[in-house]
């Protein structure tokens, strides 16, 4: 015989301090996780079966085991003169250099759009011009302008990352409660003080969301940027492998990129919890 305490607990009236309101948060459930894991398992099984019974030529779809071996081989022996770690590092450096540039330019630009009529007038058309453009469209032009070196790759990735950061910063400014700003004004704050001490902090959750979207845009541009005159990088690795029809390494590269993007997502959420714990309570 068991007594289910868990089922009784929520019905007990709360006599705790008001701060205990937090405890009313619904318990974290597993949500969609079991279903998602099952889906992944089914896909991998189907993939294994398809290659085991020769339904698809290994040239097109090597088995999961072969791909795992490819990842191991690239990690240890390398592919096209670089190991997996070196390819990954080259790509990550480009992504982070581009992200740094996009943040340094994007946040002030977003603040300008959100707070000033003139800023919005100047920057809106530029952002709206850039936003819908596929990075591949302006990549050749960037190469004509600044050459085929590292700078052009970082520039293209950065340009792809800029619109989400600018737009989410501007949206964050708009969503800053009017009372927050009025309160500061009634305590005698200057315009600059309001911008830096009220508007900017209340925009941070929005900026972090924008950064997450920007990272996604950055990854998709990375592969394109590494098409041209790269000798290292995950995108370069995938493309060279594809030229030699080394399909297992192509798939290995795709999986590594997906895994890194997934880690970024988790990292971004952790950063959110550390930097803006209050965003969840607004």
């Amino acid at each position: 015989m068991t007594i289910n305490i868990g089922a009784i607990a929520p019905a007990t009236p709360s006599v705790a301090a008001p701060a205990a309101i937090e405890a009313q948060k619904p318990k974290r459930s597993l949500g969609t996780l079991p279903v998602s894991l099952a889906t992944i398992a089914v896909i991998i099984t189907a993939w294994s079966l398809a290659s085991a019974y020769g339904l698809v030529s290994p040239l097109f779809l090597p088995s999961p085991l072969v791909v795992l071996k490819a990842i191991y081989s690239v990690a240890v022996n390398g592919f096209v003169d670089s190991t997996l770690a070196e390819h990954t590092l080259a790509s990550l450096l480009r992504i982070f250099a581009a992200l740094a540039a996009a943040i340094v330019i994007g946040i002030p630009a977003g603040l300008a759009i959100g707070t000033s009529r003139i800023g919005k007038g100047i920057l809106d058309p530029i952002v709206e011009f850039l936003r819908p453009l596929p990075p591949l469209a302006y990549l050749p032009l960037i190469i004509i302008w600044i050459g085929i070196g590292e700078a052009s790759k970082i520039t293209v990735i950065s340009l792809a990352m800029l619109p989400p950061i600018i737009l989410s910063t501007a949206a964050g400014v708009k969503s800053a409660p009017a009372d927050f700003i009025n309160a500061a004004r009634s305590f005698g704050a200057t315009r600059l003080q309001i911008l830096l001490q009220v508007i900017l902090p209340s925009t941070i959750p929005s900026i972090l969301t924008g950064t997450r979207i920007a990272l996604g845009a950055g990854w998709s541009t990375l592969v394109a940027a590494e098409l041209v005159a790269a000798s290292r990088g995950l995108g370069f690795m995938i493309q060279s492998a594809a030229q030699f029809l080394v399909t297992d390494i192509v798939i290995a590269g795709i999986i590594v990129i997906a895994a890194i993007a997934f880690l970024f997502e988790i990292l971004a959420r952790l950063l959110e919890r550390w930097f803006v714990p209050w965003a969840a309570h607004r």
């Binding site: 409660p177 009372d179 927050f180 009025n182 309160a183 004004r185 009634s186 305590f187 005698g188 009220v198 902090p201 209340s202 941070i204 803006v276 209050w278 309570h281 607004r282």
Partner: peptide
């Protein structure tokens, strides 16, 4: 000429800064 520190406002929705 506008809001100033000699007239401090307390708001219905407290308007405290959560950060």
């Amino acid at each position: 000429t506008g809001p100033a520190a000699d007239r401090a406002v307390v708001f219905q929705d407290d308007a405290l800064y959560p950060w």
